[in-house]
Amino acid sequence: MNDDDRTAMKKRVQRLVYMAAGGRISEADLGRYDTDLRQIGLDSLGYLNLLEGLERTFGVAIDLDHEEDHSFLHTIDNIVRYLVAQGGEAV
């Protein structure tokens, strides 16, 4: 995966976060990929929507039970790293 692909993936994830939060998080707050999403107001319902969106968009199965550390979901950067490691591709 080259840098362009990775950037495109970050933009898609950023869009999914925006949708998952139902517009409660401003696009300005989502401008940085290393911002902790919990700090800018992504709540448990927002995470539920985001996980659904990630699974359907990238064709991955995210099992929180088998992941000891949930920090892979804390920033857009981390989410993209996780998706790449899982072999996720936009479907």
Binding site: Y47, L48, L51, E52, E55, A61, I62, D63, L64, D65
Partner: peptide
């Protein structure tokens, strides 16, 4: 159900 209540699980 353990974990998040996602539609798939």
């Amino acid at each position: 159900l353990k974990g998040a209540p996602l539609t798939r699980p």
